[in-house]
């Protein structure tokens, strides 16, 4: 694959009227509905609608995730609400630059980067922007890989809420943002999954044609 860009035209499965199975990789006849080897349903590289829809949903719920409080901390009768960004800033104010950095990266940078990446990939495929398919594939792999780690914030909230319940002295309750953030992560993961990496190669092939 490193020498994909050759001057000679290469016969691709698509051109040959074959459809690859995403589970076992067998090339099936184009008209087949299910894989002749593993029996899994065969998906034709479809549109980008599902990607865009999941991405939009993730973006929408990401807004309340940042504007509403993530944690409601009650200490000695004094109640404080903290949003994700507010929490990171508070931590930075208290000198915990490391933790503040982790929170900021995991909860702000990465989700935003995911939105941008998935959006870029979808647009690039849709608009047939010229680009090297390999780079795009790496981007896609990175998004897929990071997706499962984006729930750190939600896990932290869940653990804190479960542990810190000392009635009068200190109580922590989850805010609306926790649910929103979890939804946002789920939606972006679904968006990434809905994206068919074959489209990258398809567009890369058409580029080279």
């Amino acid at each position: 694959m490193a020498h994909a860009r050759t001057t000679q035209p290469v016969l691709t499965a698509q051109k040959a009227g074959l459809l690859g199975c995403r589970i076992c990789g067998r090339a099936n006849p184009g008209a087949a509905q299910s894989c002749s080897r593993c029996g899994a349903a065969l998906h034709r590289p479809g549109g980008l609608q599902a990607v865009m829809a999941w991405l939009l949903a993730g973006l929408v719920v990401y807004i309340p995730a940042n504007t509403y409080p993530m944690l409601r901390t009650k200490m000695l009768g004094e109640e404080t609400d903290s949003t994700i960004l507010g929490g990171a800033i508070d931590l930075a104010h208290h000198g915990s630059w490391g933790v503040a950095g982790i929170v900021f990266v995991a909860s702000i940078l990465i989700p935003i980067a995911k939105f941008i990446t998935i959006g870029y990939l979808a647009l690039a495929v849709h608009r047939r922007w010229p680009m090297r398919g390999r780079l795009r594939f790496h981007l896609y792999e990175a998004v897929e890989f990071i997706g499962r780690w984006s729930m750190i914030d939600v896990f932290v909230v869940a653990i804190l809420v479960a542990l810190v319940q000392f009635n009068l002295a200190a109580t922590i309750a989850p805010g609306i943002a926790a649910v929103s953030f979890a939804l946002s992560v789920i939606f972006t993961m679904l968006a990434a999954q809905a994206f068919d990496p074959r489209l990258i190669w398809q567009s890369a092939d058409t580029d080279t044609e």
């Binding site: 549109g47 993730g58 719920v61 807004i63």
Partner: peptide
Amino acid sequence: LSPVWLVPVLAVAVS
């Protein structure tokens, strides 16, 4: 249009 578009619509509505 794919039915999956219902998801962002719902998300907007809930938000």
